[in-house]
Structures are given as C-alpha cells and as structure tokens.
Design a protein around this nucleic acid. Structure first.
Length: 368
DNA sequence: TCTGGGGTCCTAGGACCC
DNA sequence: TCTGGGGTCCTAGGACCC
C-alpha cells in the first residue's frame, strides 16, 4: 500500500514576506496581484478580519487603513526561490518528490512505520531551515493526503499533521467534511452533488463507481476511487515538459484603440518569446485573444485566433508578425477590451542551427 | 418525403487547480 | 474609476474520411 504526504506551506506568499519582516508575525498581512488589483494571499489575522481570497483591493481600502494591515505587492522571484529551498529541505525525507505547485509538494513515504512522527519531523525541519510554516497531510492516495492536509490546516487538534491512513479517523473526517472541500470538486460539481443530496465526503465515497461517473464524468469516478483507496493519480516525480506558454494581462483601464491593443499583444508576444528561448523551446502555433471585462456593463465580447507556423519558431519577429496579422480579426470597433493574451503551443526542443543545416525550411518536416 | 454508420482529428470552451 | 496569472485535463461538436 503506497503512502503519500502532502506538504503545504501556510499562507505561502505572506510567510515569504515575513521572513524579512519578523515584526509582522501575528499581525494582519496581505499580498496583492500584478497591478495591485486584488488579494492573492492573506495571513490568518487578515482572514479573521473577513478579507476573502481574490477580493479587489479597492473594496477593502478602508479595512486596511482601519486595522493597519500590512500590504505587499507580489514578488514572484522571491517566492520561487524560497519554494526551491523548501523542496531542497524535503529531499532528505524521500527519494520521490513531486512539486505540485509553488507552495505544495507530494512525497512518497511508503514504508515509513510512524507517519505522524515523519510529518512532525518535516514541519519542524522546514520551519527551522527556511522559516516557512507548513501543514502535512498523509494518506494512501493523493486525494486522501489532500483531504488530510485540509483537516490539518482547519482543525487545531491535529497540530499541523493529520494521518488519514488510520481507518477510524478517516471515517470521522469523511462524515464531517463537505464535498466542496475535496481536491477536484469545484463550484459546479459541488452544486450538482448538492442537487443529488450528496453533502459529505462519506456520502460521495459510498456511491457506486457508476453513480459517481454518471454525476461527474471521468474526473468524478477518479475522485471516488481515490477516496476509497485506489490510486488514480500516481506520484509523478518526472513530469513531462510543459505543454504551453501563456502571457496574459488585465488592462488597468479599458482599451478601445486598435493600435493600443496591438502594442499590448506585441509586448505579450515578446515576453512569450523570452520564456520560449529561456527553456530552449520553439513553438508550432500561436494563439492570441482579447475580451471584455467579466464584471459589469459591457456586452460580452471575446475573440480567439490561432496561427500555425510553417516551421516552428522561437523568433520574436515571427511571433509579433503573427499577432499583428491576427489583430484586425480580433479587434472590433466600439468594444472596451479589459484583458488580452498570447499562448504558444506545439512546443518542442529548439532545433539548433536550423538555418545552417536546412537551407529550405519548408522541407524540414517532410519525410525523406 | 426519404436522407448509413462509424471512425479520426481538431478546436473552442468549460471546469478545475494553486 | 479600479476586479490576477499561469497552468492541466476533459468534452462537445464540426470537418472529414471511407
């Protein structure tokens, strides 16, 4: 029977900022998104003040002033660096680690005879070596480890470590946890389950596999199986290369002029080309889109357009020329654009010296 | 009027994640 | 007035084929 531990950093971006501002320990702190648009991380004290995830900053200015909440603009370079240090620390606890996101990693701890002790050891060591507080969830599948982590975070009696490989505890948590708190059950799926009178994890786990599949398609069947101890999401410690590169931004104010939209898309394409070259990749397709705001007034308008290169490219010039050609088809007079972006797909390792060895690029991909 | 059946491939969009 | 960004996976439906 495999055993997984999910190590999740508490309020990660806030904890990173606190490393350099220890005076903010125990005080309300928030971190803001790109243009200081909305809240993307909150300390426990800020959560207690009623600040919710993703809330626009302008809506909470008064609250911030009233309670003296410390506010940071996000610093993703810093967070990436600290994330790497956390993972280096985790290396000593397992040979198989899957960094799942910037603030969480799955560890294969199969064979550890005292998982709770391991969990406590992980928490203590990561805190000591990096300054970052964590919670640890343990289970025989990733979904159960996730659920355990949720319990470890919400329920003080666990003191930061919860082991759901213990059947009695698993039953208790199953009966007291809402299906909306399961990894992979979002708002839409939760609503469907509520309509079917399924509210607790225990009720979902007790369905037949066919019923779960009927309600929530394949993803539902997988979650159902994982809750019952069958591994559907194995630990992936050698992930495939990424599938796409995205550069998207919300505009600070509505954009209505075609040239302005063109300049924004050109900047996105150039940033995307940078990422592409950094990773030693080239792209076969480019997609550009622009859309109106999801909030308020305007009639919704969204246009997405793709272009296939005859030969994969990593050139800023090719990328920009492609988006400028697409621009007139994306732009529409009178539309107030709020967001736009560029995606690169069909990624492959860059073919070095293509120009030298392939005098006729059009023939590069033909069979001999 | 009636108007195959079953494949594959591709894309747009939905849902979800952190 | 101001409302994040970067991902993955799945599904439905159209185009095309024999």
């Amino acid at each position: 029977m495999p055993l997984y531990a999910l190590v999740d950093c508490n309020n990660f971006f806030v904890s990173c900022e606190r490393i350099f501002r220890p005076d903010l320990e125990g005080k309300p702190v928030i971190v803001l998104s790109n243009n200081d648009g909305c809240v993307i991380a909150r300390s426990n004290e800020s959560k207690a003040l009623g600040i919710s995830m993703g809330v626009p900053f302008f809506q909470i200015r008064n609250l911030v002033a009233k309670f003296g909440i410390a506010v940071f603009s996000c610093n993703h370079t810093l967070y990436g660096d600290i994330s790497r240090r956390v993972n280096e620390t985790l290396d000593r606890f397992s040979d198989r680690i899957e960094p799942y996101s910037i603030d969480e990693s799955f560890l294969d701890i199969t064979g550890h005879c005292a998982p709770l002790l391991t969990g406590n050891d992980i928490r203590r060591t990561v805190r000591q070596w990096t300054g970052i507080p964590t919670c640890v969830g343990i289970g025989t599948t990733k979904t159960l480890a996730k659920l355990a982590n949720h319990a470890a975070k919400k329920m003080p009696q666990f003191a930061g470590v919860c082991d759901l490989s213990l059947p009695a505890l698993r039953q208790e948590i199953f009966h007291t946890t809402d299906i909306a708190d399961i990894w992979g059950i979002g708002a839409m799926s939760a609503e469907k389950l509520y309509c079917a009178k399924i509210r607790t994890v225990a009720q979902l786990a007790a369905l037949s596999s066919a019923q779960a599949r009927h309600l929530l398609q394949v993803q539902g069947a997988r979650i159902h199986a994982e809750l019952n101890g069958a591994v559907c999401f194995p630990l992936d410690d050698f992930p495939d290369a990424r599938q796409g590169i995205a550069v998207t931004r919300s505009f600070g104010r509505a954009v209505t002029v075609m040239e302005e939209l063109g300049q924004a898309l050109a900047a996105f394409a150039s940033r995307a080309a940078e990422k592409l070259r950094q990773d030693g990749l080239e792209a076969a397709h480019i997609t550009a889109f622009a859309r109106t705001s999801r909030h308020g007034g305007d009639a919704p308008y969204s246009k997405t357009l793709s272009f296939d290169f005859s030969t994969p490219t990593d050139s800023s010039f090719d990328l920009n020329r492609a988006v400028q050609n697409m621009l007139p088809h994306i732009y529409r007079d009178g539309v107030r654009f709020a967001k736009a972006g560029v995606f690169l797909n069909g990624l492959s390792p860059r073919a070095a010296h293509r120009a030298i060895f392939s005098p006729n690029p059009a023939q590069t991909h033909r069979h001999p």
